[in-house]
């Protein structure tokens, strides 16, 4: 499949597909970080994670409209406000969902799959009713448009760079919250043994609510980033949920570094293969590889080594 290209063309194809893969990587990492907290730490199989992402995307879309109609002077900076609003929107919806639904199901983790799947259907229909079935696009401010030429053949889009920097900061933030803050410590304790965590003085209900809501909030930010690389529709989230679970499981469900490494592997493999093969062939090959590796390493790429 490589014959019809010259060596220098191949290099640039790999470089540019690699970079396109990095944008996919960013969205996957943001999605997966939220899910790694909710699924990896809390054990809740959150099928509605994609819909929380889409909520963030719609909030970004609404913010862009408000800015372009009422505050055109500030349009170039709307994205930062949109991101914060997307986080807050998904955070509060997450907190509400935890309170009304998830908290009754911690002793029956498999049932969370059905409950959140139902939730995802409800949300999809809600989006369809409110925003219409047609996909909406966000207009990107001028400074994020265009691309930055590295060589004659290799160009990298500026919004891609922006999304990646954003991902970097958010990954760092999640790491600090989970491993350096007292909320993170409490979360990890609750996840390991809910009863015992209560018996050392941790308010487990509060911790559960915050943890779930933060996971959803990060999905909202992922939605904001998503508006730059795809158009937002009621069911767009579903396309990502399987990939996201794949990333979390492949990375080792309770390890953030593993999540990032596996998102990188999967998105790069996907993006590079897509150029040479059809999209579905690329997916098949990626999935086969992941399944093969998981058979050898059932705990995922990075598992903690402790006595159990």
């Amino acid at each position: 499949m490589f014959e019809e290209y010259t060596m220098s063309e191949l290099t640039s194809i790999f470089a540019m597909q690699g970079f396109a893969g990095l944008i996919l990587f960013s969205v996957l990492v943001l999605m997966a970080l939220g899910l790694a907290i909710i699924f990896g730490q809390m054990g809740v199989i959150n099928m509605a994670h994609g819909e929380f992402m889409i909520l963030g995307a719609y909030i970004t879309y609404l913010t862009s409209i408000v800015f372009s109609e009422h505050l055109p002077d500030l349009f170039s900076g709307y994205f930062f406000l949109a991101m914060i609003l997307a986080f807050l929107g998904s955070f509060f919806l997450g907190a509400f969902v935890e309170w009304s639904m998830i908290r009754h199901l911690y002793k029956r983790p498999l049932d969370t799959l059905l409950a959140t799947w139902g939730l995802s259907l409800i949300l999809q229909q809600l989006y369809r009713t409110i925003f219409g079935a047609r996909e909406v696009g966000v207009s990107i401010p001028d400074w994020m448009m265009g691309s930055y030429p590295i060589t004659d053949l290799i160009e990298v889009p500026i919004n891609g760079i922006f999304v990646m920097v954003l991902t970097l900061f958010i990954s760092l933030g999640v790491y600090l919250i989970m491993f350096k803050s007292s909320l993170g410590k409490q979360t990890r304790a609750v996840v390991q043994n809910r009863d015992m965590a209560g018996a050392v003085g941790i308010n487990t209900e509060k911790v559960d609510r915050y943890t779930y809501a933060i996971g959803c909030g990060i999905a909202g930010i992922a939605g904001s980033a998503f508006t730059m690389i795809g158009s937002t529709g009621p069911t767009a989230g579903q396309l990502y949920i399987v990939d996201t679970f794949l990333v979390v499981v492949f990375g080792g469900a309770s390890n953030l570094l593993g999540t990032i490494a596996s998102a990188f592997t999967i998105s790069q493999a996907q993006s590079t293969l897509e150029f040479f093969l059809s999209g579905s062939m690329a997916k098949v090959l990626t999935l086969l590889t992941v399944v093969g590796i998981l058979m050898l390493l059932p705990q995922g790429l990075f598992a903690l080594k402790i006595r159990r």
Binding site: R188, Q192, M196, R307, R308
Partner: peptide, 9 residues
Amino acid sequence: QGRMVFSTM
């Protein structure tokens, strides 16, 4: 009973 320390922490 059985200590129940948080083993991954």
